[in-house]
């Protein structure tokens, strides 16, 4: 059985699911707040007094609000909702009696979690661009003079995405392990709040929840996030995989 078929099947399950709705609502949440603020103050990104590109300015503002708490929280919820779908519907046993290797099932489900995160990022970026453009059209009928820095946006998004991966891996491990939805969500929330409280601690990088907030504190470009987040991600995923394979009862 091909891996791509396993991913397609897993992706199809998210249709109209709570996790899927969370991506849409979560992705547009902060851009809508900014949009409303622009409307209330009757201004647009053209009014930014910025030394850097006004789009980069908007990007940093929106992501700073999103990345430290809302994004990690959304990912904690999304990963739990994804596995909860199997627990709640009693479908683990059906899934585990299909002709797929356990490795396929494990990585296909995680791939869908990554794809959902990507979907969330896409909605967020669309929302961000619309927040930049719509008030300009509404108030002064002039589009921003500066072009959208696509390359910067792409690199910034990629770094935030990579910074989120250790958290995703840990939450995936927890939500595979615990049937009760509240356990992974509760652990995730405590871990996230604890990390934010202790963010100044020099060893805070041992917390998988710290990478996205650290990125915004120390600046997107100043950290080699690929190395920083990559190692714990691989470590957690390896542990998670072996715990899943070793599970005595699969349904």
């Amino acid at each position: 059985m091909k891996f791509i078929h396993s991913v397609q099947s897993e992706w199809y399950k998210t249709k109209r699911s709570a996790a899927s709705w969370l991506c849409i609502v979560g992705g547009f949440f902060i851009p809508i707040i900014y949009f409303i603020a622009f409307l209330k103050n009757q201004n647009s990104i053209n009014d930014y007094d910025s030394k850097i590109n006004i789009w980069d300015n908007l990007f940093m503002q929106l992501w700073s609000n999103m990345g430290t708490f809302i994004l990690p929280m959304g990912l904690i919820l999304a990963s739990s909702l994804l596995t909860q779908m199997e627990f709640k519907n009693n479908t683990w046993k059906q899934l585990h009696t299909t002709p797929q290797s356990y490795t396929n099932i494990f990585f296909a489900k995680f791939s869908v979690l990554l794809l959902m995160t990507l979907k969330f990022f896409i909605f967020f970026n669309i929302g961000m661009i619309l927040t930049g453009l719509l008030p300009c059209l509404i108030f002064d009928h002039q589009l921003p003079k500066e072009a959208i820095p696509i390359k910067n946006f792409a690199m910034g998004n990629l770094k935030i995405f990579v910074a989120s991966m250790p958290l995703l891996a840990l939450q995936y491990l927890l939500s595979l392990k615990f049937k009760n939805f509240l356990v992974p969500v509760g652990i995730g929330l405590m871990g996230l709040i604890g990390t934010l409280i202790g963010i100044q601690w020099k060893y805070i990088f041992i917390s998988p929840y710290s990478y996205a907030p650290l990125l915004f504190m120390k600046g997107v470009s100043k950290i080699n996030i690929f190395l920083y987040a990559g190692i714990p991600f691989i470590l957690i995923m390896t542990i998670s995989y072996f715990l899943y394979i070793a599970k005595k009862e699969k349904g």
């Binding site: 109209r16 779908m85 709640k88 009693n90 059906q94 009696t97």
Partner: peptide, 13 residues
């Protein structure tokens, strides 16, 4: 093909 105990269905689909 198998059906073990209670039905395994995705309720939102």
């Amino acid at each position: 093909g198998s059906l073990i105990e209670v039905p395994s269905l995705y309720g939102h689909l």
